[in-house]
């Protein structure tokens, strides 16, 4: 971790974007996003469905590379280096920018192998047991699964599966963790556990959390980036600021409307129908 130089008042972004635009079949789904994420912070990406939160997330770890029709324009910098440069290995980027998805997607293997699979490719085999235990402990799952590490991960509850996915990401020792609606399919108790987990992870990672739950963004995030669909149906970054100022003193009227719950559904409907 080289990012300890971040001094109190001077944010040093671990990961940042500049004029990021993602297109599908040359049609932009999200345009001109300039935003930064620093270690020790949780940044919530909020906005109605279709406003481009997921598209932004996937641009941050080059996941769009796997979708042939998707193109990423602008720049995404990790520690100042553009991850879309020709000499950058996308697979290495994805190790340093881990991602957890909305639907818990444990691999159809044992609990141990779920955490070990990614770590095995990057670390030393002799330390694997320790890496797995560390990952599971940080994800708050160790006590629940330590006696059944060889059991299939598919037999865990949805909430446990999601924390396992987070453990798997921790085990590859990333700098940034992207979370795409990670609590959306979970019950309130599991959601609470995952939220607590995010707060315990905050000091060590730059966490980017896409959510359409405004309250959750308020509870967890240090900064908020608010996205909305514009007239051309592309998502746009409306406001990006400290959580407190977004919630209590939004600069944009649309932000205020969305935060207070007055216009969310209406706006998303407009976004879909164009």
């Amino acid at each position: 971790m080289t990012q300890d130089v971040g001094v109190a008042n001077e944010r040093v972004d671990t990961l940042s974007t500049e004029e990021l635009t993602v297109t599908y079949d040359d049609i932009p789904v999200v345009s001109d996003v300039t935003v930064g994420f620093a270690r020790g912070e949780v940044t919530a990406l909020i906005g109605p469905a279709g406003s481009g939160k997921t598209s932004v997330l996937r641009a941050l770890n080059r996941l769009h590379d796997l979708t042939p029709i998707a193109r990423v324009h602008g720049s995404v910098r990790l520690h100042g280096k553009d991850i879309y440069d020709a000499d950058v290995d996308a697979f290495e980027i994805r190790r340093r920018v881990g991602m957890v998805f909305e639907t818990p997607t444990p691999f159809p293997m044992s609990i141990y192998d779920n955490v070990a699979w990614g770590a095995r490719m990057h670390g030393r085999p002799s330390e694997l047991d320790a890496v797995v235990e560390h990952g599971l402990r940080r994800a708050g799952l160790w006590d629940e699964v330590k006696d059944k590490l060889r059991q299939s991960a598919l037999r865990l509850s949805a909430g446990q599966q999601q924390r396992l996915c987070i453990a798997r990401t921790i085990a590859i020792d990333p700098d940034v963790i992207l979370m795409d609606e990670v609590t959306a399919p979970l019950d309130p108790i599991s959601t609470g556990k995952v939220e607590d987990l995010i707060l315990t992870l905050r000091p060590d990672y730059a966490i980017v959390l896409a959510t359409h739950n405004v309250q959750q963004a308020g509870r967890l995030s240090d900064r908020v980036a608010f996205f909305l669909v514009d007239e051309s149906r592309a998502g746009r970054l409306v406001e990006w600021a400290d959580t407190d100022s977004v919630f209590f003193a939004p600069r944009d009227a649309r932000t205020e409307a969305y935060i207070s719950g007055r216009a969310g559904s209406d706006m998303s409907a407009r976004g879909r129908t164009g």
């Binding site: 996941l63 697979f91 190790r95 998805f101 997607t105 691999f107 159809p108 699979w117 990401t169």
Partner: peptide, 25 residues
């Protein structure tokens, strides 16, 4: 399932590793 592939790629796996350990099994 495509999400299985995405999950595997998201821990830094190469295409071949994804195919060998997830897609083929």
């Amino acid at each position: 399932a495509p999400r299985l592939r995405l999950a595997a790629f998201s821990v830094g796996a190469t295409r071949w590793q994804v195919v060998r350990d997830h897609v083929l099994p």
